[in-house]
Simulated scan of single mutants.
Amino acid sequence: MSLVLPSELVVERFLPTVRAMLARRLADRGLTQQEIAAHLGVTQAAVSKYVGGDGAGDEHFRDDAETVATVDRIADGLAGGEFDGYDALAELVSLIRTLEDRGPICELHEEEMPELRGLGCDLCVRGLDPDVRTERDVLSTVRTAARTLAAIPGMPEYVPNVGTNVGMGLPDPRDETDVAAIPGRIYAIGGRIEIPANPEFGASKHVATAILAATAVDPDVRGAINIATDDGVLEAARSLGIEPLEFDADYDDREAHLRSRFDDRGEVPLVAYHRGAFGIEPVTYVFGGDAETAVELVHDLLGATS
């Protein structure tokens, strides 16, 4: 794991880019290299390099509209005498805070630390927050569940044509952005399971609506996976003491429909399925307390079919 602080990116990537942008803009406004060096707190040789460079700096900032606007504002202020060093610094500090709030600094941070991807990280803005730990735990659980799923013998045969997904919600999820799943779904390719990316929140609509319906009835049921409907799997569920719940495939509001059916049952069934409809592939949802538990049940169901 690489440990990179956002401040390192500010020093190593942001500041050199902004200095180069400012140097060229101040030169365009008629300032000498010596005057520019005094404003920027660098040597005249550095200014010469900045001014002579072509497209120098990091494109994350060089092409960012907010950065361009701030640099232009500072250049105008310094060249016209309305800004001093304090004013320029205040503008840059404000800009950095903006860029750390889901901006280019965030993008760079995720590139340098892939562990942050999918977290919707706002650590720089919000500070240490126990909710972030919960989000990380959910993402980790879904990641492990997906890898476990890929290793289940015979699993590719039960992946629907539209793909499958495994997801898990945060405690008391409000909407699909509180449910983590695999972006782009999981597919069976060449007899093996293909997991295209690490889990992210808001990555799945279908499995998320099933999880939201389940947690609305039983907050302890936060994980689910969809697989192809198969009579052998349904019989395997019954042999394990699980009575599958059949529901309609053709409905407008999936979450509301599932919640109503769960309410009718008086609980969230571990297995719920539909037989499909025109343009709708038959699908079975397998539920669990978390994503790993749901996948473990899939493993048991497939094992019981053989």
Rank of each mutant, 00 (worst) to 15 (best):
M1V: 11
M1A: 01
L5K: 09
E8R: 02
E8D: 07
V11W: 12
F14N: 12
F14A: 08
P16M: 01
R24E: 15
L26W: 02
D28K: 10
R29Q: 02
E35N: 14
I36K: 08
A45Q: 11
A46V: 09
V47Q: 01
V51Q: 12
D54Y: 04
H60A: 09
F61W: 05
R62W: 02
R62Q: 06
T67Y: 03
T70A: 07
G80M: 06
A88N: 00
S94V: 06
R102V: 06
R102D: 07
G103Y: 02
P104R: 08
G120M: 01
V125R: 14
T134A: 13
V138F: 04
L139Q: 10
L139D: 04
T144E: 06
T144D: 13
A146H: 02
A150P: 14
I152A: 04
M155H: 13
P160E: 01
M168H: 12
D172V: 12
D175N: 15
E176G: 00
I186W: 03
Y187R: 15
R192M: 03
P196N: 06
F201Y: 14
G202A: 05
S204G: 08
T209G: 00
P219Y: 01
D220H: 11
V221P: 07
I227V: 15
A237K: 11
R238L: 03
S239V: 11
G241Y: 14
I242M: 11
P244E: 02
L245Y: 00
D248G: 03
D253M: 11
V271H: 07
V271K: 12
G279L: 07
V283L: 15
Y285A: 00
G289L: 00
D290T: 09
E292F: 13
E292Q: 06
T293A: 14
A304S: 12
T305L: 00
S306N: 04
